[in-house]
Amino acid sequence: MTEQGDRRGQGARPVRAPRRITPDYLQRAAMHYLERYSAPAAQLRRVLARKIALSCRHHGEDPAAHAAALDDVVSRCVGSGLVDDQRFAEARAATLRRRGRSARAVAASLTAKGVGRELAEEASNVDEAEELAAARKAARRKRLGPWSRGDRSASRQKDLAALARAGFSITIVRAVIDGADDEDLESDTRA
């Protein structure tokens, strides 16, 4: 029984050894990953590089020997349109904005995923009304400002700081935290 099998219990099946890396295996692994997740080219490259490193560590091979195959698989996925950084950035930015993330936080999240800095800035660029709506969603979700249950004046500084840390500008933060009651804000978001 393997060491990991001993930790998981008696009836656990043994851990399977990673497969040897071939160009065909890398292509199948990329297709399997892209069936489940939308990803930019840099993210796909990181996932496949981890598979290569794991297999090479187990089989005693050099990961650099598979660099050409990795480049080929990623370029084929980009060339066929399966991987499109622009499309990924726009879709992910829209999702994050709906969750109440600031434009700065959206850009940071996209660059962390491997999207280029210029493309991330372009995808996260919004007007002030959209940024205000996102800040209201964030405040409502975190129960800040008009949505807090306690004394608003006692927690004002903390509420301001929480939204500022989330990446919103101070003018947006003040407008949301010092805003009207919940009913007034509900009518603003419906209009």
Rank of each mutant, 00 (worst) to 15 (best):
M1Y: 15
A12D: 07
A12I: 06
A12E: 07
R13V: 10
R13A: 13
P23R: 11
D24A: 14
D24M: 12
D24L: 12
Y25K: 11
Y25D: 13
Y33D: 04
R36H: 09
Y37F: 09
P40C: 05
P40W: 03
A41N: 09
R45K: 13
L48E: 04
A49R: 11
I52R: 01
A53E: 06
L54K: 05
S55E: 08
H59N: 12
G60Y: 08
D62C: 15
D62G: 13
D62F: 12
V78Y: 07
G79P: 08
S80W: 10
L82W: 10
D85P: 02
R87Y: 05
A91D: 12
A91S: 13
A94V: 08
A94Q: 12
R98H: 14
S102G: 05
A103V: 02
A103Y: 01
A105V: 01
A105E: 01
V106F: 02
A107M: 02
A107R: 02
A108T: 08
L110Q: 00
L110T: 00
T111A: 06
V115G: 01
E118F: 07
L119V: 02
L119T: 03
A120M: 04
E122I: 05
E122F: 04
A123S: 05
N125A: 09
N125W: 04
E131I: 00
R140T: 10
K142L: 10
K142R: 11
G145C: 06
P146W: 04
W147T: 07
W147P: 03
W147Y: 14
R149V: 11
G150I: 05
G150D: 09
R152L: 05
S155R: 13
L160R: 06
L160M: 14
L163N: 00
V173Q: 03
A175P: 01
I177T: 03
G179T: 05
D181E: 11
E183C: 14
E183G: 12
E183A: 15
D184T: 13
L185S: 09
D188W: 15
